Computed example of a mutant assay.
Amino acid sequence: MPDPRESRRRSRALSHALWFARARPGDYLLAAARMSAGLPMIGRHLEPFGGFLALGLFAPGFAPGLLATTGRPHLPVGGVDRQRVRHGDTVAAVASGLADVVSGSVQWPAPTSLAPVFNSTAHRKHVRHASVPYGDQPGQVVDVWSRADLVGTDAPVLLFVPGGAWVFGSRKLQGHSLMSHLAEMGWVCLSLEYRTSPKHRWPRQLIDVKAAISWARANVGRYGGDPAFVAVAGCSAGGHLATLAGLTPDDRTPELPADADTTVDAVVSIYGSYDWEDRSTPERARFMSFLERVVVQRRQRARPETFRAASPMARMTSDAPPFLVIHGTKDFLIPIHEAETFAARLRSVSRSRVSYIPVPGGTHGFDLIDGTRTGPVVNAIGMFLDHVHRERRARVDTAV
């Protein structure tokens, strides 16, 4: 009778031989980065360099779009009048996308020429507890945001998932405008850090998001939050992760307890990615190659089921929670038609609310660099989440 251990050893040897036969110089560099990230003591500090290396080697096609989105959109080009026009266009788009939520008496924040990222220190005054573990692995931590005078244990909860092309997962900068605003509204926010590629291949990122949701359901009460209402939001790769978590609460993984509650009550995806299967254009082919070589570390043609399972476009169901999809019309990294298609398809399937806001002139990362558009969008997210929360409470009260 064949020895199973010998069969596994031969299979691994064959897999390694095939990798060496197909590998390019960049793959060897990436493998070295993964190995260095696993070193005791210093590996954690070297891990971000693997992410930078991966983007430089395997995503050079994204560079022109990245430069276009981060060049000068936060500067007051055209003066105060131009800022007011951009701000007015954003307010109009928000009012249209949330017509049944936004009232005519809303006081929208004034546009600013200062990039929101430069206000991060001021926003972080709402961080009440830093680096709270939600798991046993290094880096599985959240910061807890809330107002200093928050009392009780019934504040609605938002888990925020930062972006970073699935190779960065830091909670240090992104989402601060949103979480600060929600904290002022009386929410408890959890800013998530998670494991990333190339050291940790997919689906470790999603597993960490689900682990954090489960942790919040079980533990957020001690920080003033209501475990009965947990929403999730994210930007870019974080939007993808938030969306996928919202669409797949019943997916099980050995890394989570069988009784883990990973359901969410609402999802907000900001310039997220929704399609992990399409290779129809050169840009899509480059994106899929990046996923294959850096994030999933498997070929799509060999593991199509893995890519399909990770594609929100393929995971829609009628039981999806309420969704708010936000995307800039000038996003050169993830074109807006991907968000439009996702929102339209989800609306045709889901029994829950699906709202969509195209941000006129918004670029990828506008919430970090664009002071004219970020304020209205952040306020809109707050109104959407508050509306969903009030609807949920009304249903619960009626049932009782």
Score class of each variant (00 low, 15 high):
residue 1 M to V: 15
residue 3 D to I: 05
residue 4 P to L: 10
residue 5 R to E: 15
residue 5 R to Y: 07
residue 7 S to Y: 08
residue 13 A to E: 13
residue 15 S to L: 12
residue 19 W to I: 02
residue 23 A to W: 04
residue 30 L to D: 06
residue 32 A to T: 11
residue 33 A to C: 05
residue 38 G to N: 09
residue 41 M to H: 11
residue 42 I to A: 02
residue 46 L to V: 10
residue 47 E to A: 14
residue 47 E to N: 14
residue 48 P to M: 07
residue 48 P to Y: 04
residue 51 G to S: 08
residue 51 G to R: 05
residue 52 F to R: 15
residue 56 G to A: 15
residue 60 P to N: 01
residue 61 G to Q: 03
residue 62 F to L: 06
residue 63 A to I: 14
residue 64 P to L: 08
residue 65 G to T: 06
residue 65 G to A: 02
residue 68 A to G: 10
residue 70 T to I: 07
residue 77 V to G: 05
residue 82 R to K: 11
residue 87 H to K: 03
residue 89 D to I: 09
residue 89 D to V: 10
residue 91 V to F: 04
residue 92 A to W: 06
residue 92 A to F: 05
residue 93 A to S: 09
residue 93 A to W: 05
residue 100 D to H: 13
residue 101 V to M: 13
residue 103 S to W: 02
residue 107 Q to I: 14
residue 107 Q to Y: 06
residue 110 A to E: 12
residue 114 L to Q: 14
residue 117 V to G: 03
residue 120 S to L: 11
residue 121 T to E: 15
residue 123 H to S: 13
residue 124 R to D: 07
residue 131 S to H: 14
residue 132 V to D: 00
residue 136 D to V: 08
residue 138 P to L: 03
residue 144 V to M: 09
residue 146 S to N: 11
residue 147 R to S: 15
residue 153 T to S: 13
residue 156 P to M: 09
residue 159 L to C: 14
residue 160 F to W: 11
residue 164 G to E: 12
residue 166 W to H: 12
residue 168 F to A: 11
residue 168 F to H: 03
residue 170 S to H: 04
residue 174 Q to L: 15
residue 175 G to L: 14
residue 175 G to M: 06
residue 176 H to N: 14
residue 182 L to P: 11
residue 186 G to N: 07
residue 187 W to K: 07
residue 188 V to R: 03
residue 189 C to R: 00
residue 189 C to I: 00
residue 192 L to K: 05
residue 193 E to I: 07
residue 198 P to S: 10
residue 203 P to Y: 01
residue 203 P to S: 09
residue 203 P to I: 05
residue 208 D to F: 02
residue 211 A to K: 15
residue 216 A to E: 10
residue 217 R to G: 13
residue 218 A to Q: 15
residue 218 A to I: 06
residue 230 V to W: 01
residue 231 A to S: 13
residue 235 C to P: 10
residue 236 S to E: 10
residue 237 A to T: 01
residue 238 G to S: 07
residue 240 H to Q: 09
residue 243 T to E: 03
residue 244 L to M: 03
residue 249 P to E: 10
residue 251 D to H: 11
residue 253 T to G: 05
residue 253 T to L: 08
residue 254 P to R: 10
residue 256 L to W: 04
residue 259 D to I: 08
residue 261 D to L: 06
residue 262 T to N: 01
residue 268 V to S: 01
residue 273 S to F: 14
residue 277 E to T: 15
residue 279 R to V: 00
residue 280 S to T: 00
residue 282 P to N: 04
residue 285 A to N: 00
residue 287 F to P: 00
residue 298 R to C: 11
residue 298 R to M: 09
residue 299 R to Q: 04
residue 300 Q to R: 10
residue 303 R to K: 14
residue 309 A to Q: 15
residue 316 M to Q: 11
residue 317 T to P: 04
residue 317 T to I: 07
residue 318 S to N: 12
residue 322 P to G: 07
residue 326 I to D: 10
residue 328 G to H: 07
residue 329 T to R: 09
residue 331 D to V: 07
residue 339 A to H: 00
residue 339 A to C: 00
residue 340 E to K: 01
residue 353 R to F: 10
residue 353 R to A: 14
residue 361 G to Q: 00
residue 363 T to R: 15
residue 368 L to G: 09
residue 369 I to Q: 05
residue 370 D to W: 02
residue 371 G to W: 02
residue 372 T to R: 08
residue 374 T to D: 01
residue 377 V to Q: 03
residue 380 A to P: 03
residue 387 H to Y: 11
residue 389 H to A: 06
residue 389 H to N: 06
residue 393 R to P: 02
residue 395 R to S: 13
residue 396 V to N: 03
residue 397 D to W: 10
residue 400 V to A: 12
